[in-house]
């Protein structure tokens, strides 16, 4: 399977502030890839670099094998790009914007666009600037679907959308993704919606990558355990086994990729012997918070 996106040794600073260092990942063709992270961890920065809108301090990004800041028109035609906040030309009406974009894309299909528009309570001559945030997101989505790109890059599609619109948005994406070799690269900070949607996930924190694996594998191997400790003064550290932990007096919750038996062995080494270590099932969102922490 070919790599649609390759990010190699990406390092970026804003002034003196390091955003990320030696960042590597790739997106394979036909996969739905989620870049997840809390606000300010560099999701939009990554997307901007990927689309050539930002010069990284070092490293490079390839899209369909082309350097991302010098994309050829042919490659740009294959990439659909949703800018954070569903930004579109707000001075155009529903009809005008469709007419405009159709001239640029040879594979343009206006039917899915108008189908989506017919579900909104808007007229075809209504300007985007006169629409609600949710309606605008549907226009932006409709345009992407009409473009029929091979790679869809969605920067925080959920921004400002209520649950209904988020669901609507994803329903259409699922339809889109069913087609042959369509790749989706999505970022979000609302995790729960993506649970049954993503194929792969990359969870980043400030300056570092926390998880890079298929989502099923993540959900299967990342676990939460609870137990009480006899000695509340015991100190935990994040190490190979414990990815994250919370401690409230003698009640401890740890997050780990390790099996229970390995965790117990580790606890024994800390002289925590007789506790009942209990595994607590997690949703994707729980797991996300588990690994990134609440703060």
């Amino acid at each position: 399977m070919e790599n649609v996106v390759e990010v190699k040794n990406l390092t970026h600073y804003y002034g003196k502030k390091l955003v990320f260092e030696n960042f590597n990942f790739e997106i394979k063709s036909g996969r739905i890839f989620g870049l997840l992270g809390k606000n300010g961890t560099g999701k939009t920065t990554t997307i901007n670099i990927l689309n050539g809108f930002l010069k990284p301090t070092s490293g490079n990004c390839l899209m369909f094998g082309e350097n991302s800041y010098k994309l050829s028109p042919q490659t740009k035609a294959k990439v659909g790009f949703l800018i954070e906040g569903h930004i579109q030309y707000s001075f155009m009406s529903i009809k005008q914007i469709e007419k405009f974009y159709s001239a640029f894309y040879p594979k343009w299909k206006k039917e899915p666009y108008y189908e989506l528009m017919s579900k909104l309570a808007v007229t075809e001559d209504q300007k985007l600037s006169k629409m609600s945030c949710g309606q605008r997101s549907q226009v932006a989505l409709g345009l992407l679907l009409a473009q029929d790109p091979d790679l869809l890059i969605l920067d925080d599609y959920s921004m400002g959308l209520d649950a209904g619109y988020r669901r609507l948005f994803l329903d259409y994406l699922i339809e889109y993704a069913k087609a042959e070799s369509k790749t989706i690269f999505i970022t979000s900070h609302i995790i729960q919606d993506l649970e049954n949607f993503l194929d792969d996930c990359l969870i980043i924190d400030y300056k570092s990558v926390l998880v890079a694996m298929p989502i099923r594998e993540f959900q299967k191997t990342f676990k939460q355990f609870r137990f009480t400790v006899p000695n509340p003064e015991v100190m935990f550290i994040k190490n190979g086994i414990i990815k994250n932990f919370e401690k409230l007096k003698d009640k401890v919750t740890v997050y780990t990729f390790a099996e229970k038996i390995d965790l117990v062995a580790y606890l024994n080494s800390l002289n925590i012997n007789n506790s009942a270590v209990e595994e607590i099932p997690m949703s994707l969102e729980d797991a996300f918070i588990g690994i990134t922490g609440k703060y």
């Binding site: 809108f53 740009k76 930004i87």
Partner: peptide, 18 residues
């Protein structure tokens, strides 16, 4: 100025042309 508003110029730059 509409192009610079919310960086809409990105949309234009992303159009499949030089």
């Amino acid at each position: 100025s509409p192009e610079m508003n919310s960086s809409r110029l990105k949309l234009t730059m992303h159009l499949p042309a030089k």
